[in-house]
């Protein structure tokens, strides 16, 4: 059909894409050697902090699929963390110990919840979407506080961790560290592929001009709903890991402040970028830790820092990295 040489497609994009792949791999590589460095950096405490950061990175990456690529501002994404954590905790409490059956349950239930609430929420747009996703999260929050059989308001301490063929892979320590890292790497790669795929292209286009996408023959609602469900399932996996790490589940995981935190991570890191949510989550968890080491009242610094970043920067951390490379 075409006599044009095909391989020269989008040569402008090739460089930055490869660079973003490299930056991401370097970050993951640095994370991978953390356990070796941990004796110098503060031991087990440091390790568990990095695990927490990686878990939030998974949640932030999954949020970016709807927030960044899809342009849907979900203000209730912590609900999936909560669902993942509670499904895990309740399963362990009820005698289901296998990690795979538990993960399957987590994916199934968080996916089903996303399907139902997404189908309702996506009837609205803009600020109404923000508020209705928040409302669903609040409903789950209050349901969990009244689950007195599983700890109610106070939460529930878990006495077991999931096992894989008799191994306690998800017990605190390097087992949990590397299983989290592997899941993070997989999800990081998967979400980027998804965003760049035919599916993701339609999703990204619908963020810019949904009517036009519809007039090209795509059912925008279906694309958005699928993205929402996948995002919810992946955030559910983060909830599973959170329960394993904390050995504790609590309704506060689904609070709107946590949802706000996830948004901060994605936006600070850089919306709809390959490494943005990853860097953003690591940055936020670590900076909070560092600030809280300096002063008990670290929020007095972090709050204004947020405001200043919003007022004076564009494109988040990923944008900063890109700009530096481009100019220097």
């Amino acid at each position: 059909m075409s006599e044009l040489p095909v391989p020269d497609l989008a040569p402008v994009n090739r460089g930055p894409l490869d660079r973003s792949l490299m930056i991401g791999l370097i970050v993951l590589g640095l994370l991978a050697i953390m356990p070796l460095l941990s004796p110098i950096l503060g031991g087990d405490y440091m390790l568990s902090l990095v695990i927490k950061a990686m878990i939030f990175a998974i949640a932030a990456i999954s949020l970016d699929l709807v927030l960044g690529y899809g342009g849907m501002v979900s203000f209730g994404h912590a609900v999936f963390l909560g669902i993942g954590a509670y499904v895990t905790g309740i399963a362990l409490q009820e005698g289901v110990y296998g990690a795979f059956p538990i993960l399957a349950l987590v994916l199934l239930i968080s996916g089903a919840f996303a399907l139902i609430t997404g189908a309702i929420s996506l009837r609205t747009t803009g600020v109404y979407f923000i508020m209705i996703t928040l409302a669903f999260a609040q409903m789950v929050y209050f349901s969990l506080t009244s689950l007195s059989y599983y700890g109610g308001d106070d939460g529930l301490t878990l006495w077991d961790t999931p096992e894989v063929f008799g191994m306690y892979l998800f017990q605190t320590g390097s087992g949990l560290f590397y299983s989290t890292l592997v899941l993070l790497a997989l999800i990081w790669f998967f979400v980027w592929r998804l965003a760049m795929s035919r599916f993701g292209r339609v999703l990204r286009a619908a963020k810019q001009n949904p009517t036009r996408v519809g007039s090209l023959g795509y059912n925008v609602f279906v694309y958005r709903l699928i993205a929402y469900v996948i995002s919810g399932m992946l955030a559910g996996v983060a909830g599973f890991l959170l329960a394993c790490q904390a050995e504790f589940i609590s309704p506060s995981t689904t609070s709107w402040q946590i949802s706000g935190h996830l948004i901060i991570m994605v936006v600070l890191g850089g919306l709809a970028t390959r490494n943005g949510p990853l860097l953003g989550a690591l940055f936020v968890v670590l900076i909070e830790e560092i600030l809280s080491q300096i002063t008990h009242d670290w929020r007095l610094i972090f709050g204004p820092l947020l405001v200043l970043i919003v007022l004076f920067s564009k494109g988040g951390l990923a944008g900063l990295l890109k700009n530096k490379r481009a100019t220097g």
């Binding site: 095909v6 497609l9 592929r193 998804l194 760049m196 795929s197 035919r198 292209r201 694309y223 699928i226």
Partner: peptide, 13 residues
Amino acid sequence: GGMGIWRIAASDS
């Protein structure tokens, strides 16, 4: 081609 979710769309020759 439907709704592919894995192959990079920009490299679909």
